[in-house]
Every structure is written in C-alpha cells, then in structure tokens.
Design a protein around this nucleic acid. Structure first.
Lengths: 220, 220
DNA sequence: CGGTTTGTTGAGTTCTATCAACCGGGGTGG
DNA sequence: CCACCCCGGTTGATAGAACTCAACAAACCG
C-alpha cells in the first residue's frame, strides 16, 4: 500500500528507510503550520495525524485523517498548504524535501510508488470535495464511517466496525458540519438501524449496503 | 507551468510531445466517464475541459475546470474516478498510461515536472474542499472569480477581469450551490461594489483585496 | 466525590434550496 | 423585418436543512 517507510527494511528499497529521520510526537502536538516553509516530507509509522486548514474567520476544515503508512507534507510551493497535528502519540519518518527528490530520481521504482500514492491522495481529496459539495449531513456521515472502517480494516481493525479515535469536533470539521449535526446524524442512522453504537467511539456498521448507497448520494 | 505538451517542441523534452496523439473534441462532447477503464492521460492544448462526478441522486459535482496546459486523467485505479467533458471546442494531447509511465522513467526531469503538476492538482482540490466545507455562498463566489481571473491572466487574459465561459449551472455545480444562489451571490457582490458585470459573462473584479479576504473565510 | 470536559437533545434562527414568475437576448419562420 | 419562441439568467416567496444558543447527560480525572 502506501508503505514507504513502515516495514521498509524488508522491502526492495532500503535506501529510503536509511535516509529518513525518526520523529515522535505527543498527542495534539503541532508538526507544522500552513504557510510555514516546507522543508520535509513525512510518513506515518504509528498513530494518527490530522491535516487541516484554518479560515480567517476561525473555521477549521480538516482535510485528512492520516494513519499508519500515510505520506504527507506534499506541496507545490515553498510552504505547506495545510497544517499538521498529531491526533495521538505518533511516530513518523521524515525526509528532507530535496533529499527525497534525489532518492526518487535515483530509484525509479520508488518514484512510481510515489506517483501511485499521490494519485491516491488526489482521489481522496476529490472524494471529500464531492461529499462536501453534494451530500447531506447523513450521507456524509455514512461515507465517513465506511471510510474509517475500511481504512482500519487494512491496518488490523475489525471489518464492519469503525473506531473513532477523533472527537466529534474533529469529525464535524472534516465533514463541514457542526458537532450537533454530527451527533444528531449518528442518532438518526442508529434509529434507522444502519449502525449501532457499541460505545461512543466504536460503531458497528450493520447495513453496509445502505450506508454505501447513501455515500454515493442516493436520496434518502 | 503545467505545460507538458503545449509548446513542448521548443522545450527540452521533445520526446513527450512526439509520443502523444492529438485529439479534437466538439463542445459538450464526453471524453470519458467515471468508472470507465483508464487507458490514457491527457493534456489540454486549447479550449476548456470540465471534470465532474455524478451522484446516485442525480447531483453533479464539478471538480475542475481545465484550461490550456492542464493535465488530467490521473487515477490510482484501473478506471477513472471522474468524468471529463469538453467545455468548448477543445484540442488535446493523449498518451497511453503505460507509455507515459515509461517516458517518466526514461526522463527524470519530466518525472519531476510531473510531480510538481500533481502536487498542484492536489493543492487545488484541497482548496476546493476547504471552500465547500467552510465558506458561505458569497465567499465561494469571491474565490471562484479570483481563481478564474488568475488562471486566465496566465494564459493571456486581462488581469482584474474574469471571463466566464461556463454556464451558471456549471458554476453552481462547481461551488456546491444552485444557479439561483450563484445569481443572487453575484448580485450582492455587485451591490457591495466588489465586482461589476461588464456583460453576463465578463466580470470586473473591482476590489481584489476584499474578494481575497472573503476567500480566506473572513466573516462578512 | 466534585468539577471539568465531551457528547446529546431541544428550541429557535439563518442560509441555501425549491418552486415559480419574469426578463432579455438570439434564433427562426412567417 | 418583426413577431414569436426558447433558453439562460435574474428576482421573488416559501420551505427545509443545518447552524446557533442553551440545557442536560455522561464520561473523565484529579
């Protein structure tokens, strides 16, 4: 998958791993802010990172929840275009931007992997834009739960369940909603029998088919 | 800039241009649909293309208006994740996906250019997600006009003016609004003295500073 | 155990969508 | 040439989804 650094020692590209610096962050620690000079590229080894952007009016749009294996810090400009904060205790790999580029030139297979990763990032952000532009609160929530559960299934979670390590505030800021609307939405999904809440932060997706249809934008 | 094919004959990478097929489309012609097998990558030589995604309920989210020099058709999967339609008479360069990859391996400078382009695409779609998630109708419109005028200034437009070659419907579907809200929004921006409408489709941005602040999400 | 934080539920407001009427330019045909 | 229609855009009235403000409940922590 997107494993560039994680478990890289046993891959065919040990150079990348060797050239990286390891970093650890505590929960809520800020790694970098939007508009700061972009010197590094990062990869999540363990934990979760949150990418977001603040508006001048204090709005926060979360643009991605990152999990193990995810790459971030990519920008076309000299500065980052998002801010990055640890969502949990986190351990990261870090490369100097220019060094990273050198490595990609040196190892074409790695460059190809990089292209695959970035195209996935692009696809993800198009998905988010579609959701924010066209889906209702409930539909966005359905998609969010599916997304999280699929993401977690790949890194050892229970299929059909979504663990929510982030707060309702984070979910709201990701889906372009308020915490109240998120809360109400979850309640309505529950009352419709599409999900059930094991705990506040662990949700069972009981009707994957309907949830998936909702995420496609099917009318109620 | 993103000129991979346009004017490539006089650049340092003639190989890319030589390996491309040229295609012409009439206005409104569909180039490919979402979920179709992705065999090619394209570059706009002249005209405008529209990338969009349809929802199961008939919603359309436009995910990008493409102009001269823009690259599209990038997907991590075997099929496209958006649909592409000509917004005007259009002429394109086309490469076979695999051939294109070969070229990138062959020419590292080209691969680097490609990485820059994709990171710009990513940045753009993050901008859209921020706008759709956090900005009001008026703020989105302000940003849209700025975006268009900047885009056009680079390819020979008049700075401070935005020509809108697309319909109100297209603008609405891009900004996650309805045509009525777009219309009202433009009227309000006009009444505030931030823009003036030379014609329906040519708008003068009279107060770039305020428009820009609005796009950052500053409260009314 | 009290106090603080996080999440849920309720009541009222606001912004955008919906439904409908109207306007104006561009093409067509009488 | 002009009347007519058609289509895209604007404006108006109303409805609905999500937001705001506020109270309450539940979990968390010292």
């Amino acid at each position: 998958m997107s494993d560039l650094c994680v478990g890289l020692s046993d891959s065919s590209l040990p150079a990348l791993y060797e050239q990286s610096t390891h970093i650890n962050l505590d929960k809520s620690e800020t790694l970098f802010l939007s508009d700061q000079a972009a010197e590094h590229i990062f990869n999540v080894r363990e934990g979760t990172m949150t990418l977001y952007r603040m508006g001048a009016g204090g709005q926060r749009q979360i643009l991605g929840f990152l999990f193990t294996g995810d790459l971030f810090g990519i920008t076309p400009d000299a500065s980052y275009n998002v801010s990055a904060q640890a969502g949990s205790e986190v351990s990261l790999c870090r490369w100097n931007k220019d060094r990273f580029d050198d490595l990609l030139v040196l190892y074409p297979a790695m460059a190809q992997q990089y292209r695959l990763i970035t195209s996935k990032l692009l696809a993800q952000s198009l998905n988010l834009a579609f959701a924010l532009g066209q889906l209702t609160a409930e539909q966005r929530l359905a998609g969010f739960l599916l997304h999280i559960s699929q993401r977690q299934a790949r890194i050892g979670g229970i299929p059909g369940f979504a663990a929510l390590p982030m707060s309702r505030m984070d979910i709201a800021d990701y889906l372009g909603l308020t915490i109240e609307t998120v809360s109400r939405g979850l309640t309505r999904l529950r009352k419709k029998g599409l999900i059930s809440m094991v705990t506040r932060d662990l949700i069972e997706l009981s009707d994957l088919k309907t949830l998936s249809r909702m995420n496609q934008g099917e009318e109620a």
